[in-house]
Every structure is written in structure tokens, then in C-alpha cells.
Amino acid sequence: MNDLGETHLRTWTLRMMALLAADSLDQLAWMGERELETKDLVEEAELLCRFFEAHAEHEALEAEDLRNLRVIGRRLGKVDVTCHASLWGNALTADPAWDDIRSLTRRFLHTMLGDWRQPLPRPVHPPEDDH
């Protein structure tokens, strides 16, 4: 992987981890009126975790950061399957797994950056209807 690709992937991962580490009220505010499905969020976060594990030989992350990311990936894989079909806003309040994930991602960010409090990614708004 080239440096530009690694930089983009690292930024994408840190933004996702910042979102997962945020307080639940901040996560809900970040979503606003959007309907984000839990399965989409879980799949994207798991993909990032697997990608870094597969590219560990490129040393894109320190060993401890990679271990923390593996733990996050495993925990995401255990999110209640019934919550996968729901909206993430509903899952945040119904599934205690999100408290565990929040704690794990905070540890990852603290170890990697020195503080888990990071700016949330800019929300992607759905395209407006031109009709």
C-alpha cells in the first residue's frame, strides 16, 4: 500500500473510532435525522479492523494499537444479531454491547493519540431530492 492509501485508511479508521467512542448522546446528535442501520456501521468498522490486521506487515499501526483494534473487531462481531436489523440509534439504547465498544474504542484512541476525545466525522447527508 502506498503512503497516501495508508494515510487515508488511518484517517478513516480514526474517524470511525471517534464516532464509536463518543458519548451516546453525542452519537445520537451526530446522526440527527438520518437513519443509519446498525449492520452498516458494524460492517464498516469490522472491515477497518480486518484490513489493518491483514496489512499488519506494513506496520501501519503499532503492535498495541493493532491488538486493541482486534479486540474491537471481535466485540463488534458479537453485537446482538437482532440489533443488526435495527437503526443504530435504537441499538445504542437497547444493546449494552455499545457501552463495551465505546470503552474499547476509547482505550484504542487514548493509546494511539493520547486522548479518546476526538472530533466526530462530518455527517454525510443523504442527497436531496431534485424533483
Rank of each mutant, 00 (worst) to 15 (best):
P121V: 08
L69P: 11
A21M: 12
Q118L: 01
L19N: 03
T93V: 13
R107E: 14
L109F: 10
A18C: 09
D100A: 09
A29V: 13
L28T: 07
P121H: 08
E64S: 06
P96L: 10
R10Y: 09
L48P: 00
E33W: 00
R50D: 15
T38V: 03
D95R: 07
G89R: 14
L25E: 15
H131S: 09
A63Q: 07
D26E: 15
R34K: 06
R75E: 15
L47G: 12
T93P: 00
R50W: 10
G77K: 10
R34H: 05
E35C: 05
A91C: 12
E62Y: 01
R107L: 14
S103N: 10
W98F: 15
E33D: 15
A94M: 11
A18E: 09
R74Y: 10
E33Q: 08
E6L: 11
L120S: 01
D129H: 08
M1R: 04
R67G: 00
L41W: 12
A97T: 07
H8P: 00
K39S: 02
L41K: 09
T105Y: 10
H125Y: 10
M31I: 09
G89V: 10
A94I: 04
E6D: 06
A45N: 05
D129G: 01
W12G: 00
W116S: 04
E35P: 00
D40I: 02
L48K: 00
W30C: 02
A91S: 15
K39W: 12
V124Q: 05
G77F: 10
G89D: 14
D99K: 12
W88T: 05
D3T: 06
D40T: 08
T105E: 12
L92F: 06
S24C: 06
G32I: 07
L36M: 06
P126Q: 12
D23C: 00
D40R: 13
D3A: 13
L120K: 04
E62V: 02
M112Y: 02
L66S: 07
E6T: 05
R50Q: 13
A54Y: 11
L69W: 14
H110Y: 09
D40Q: 10
H131Q: 06
I101E: 02
H84V: 05
R117P: 00
D65H: 06
D100P: 00
L48V: 04
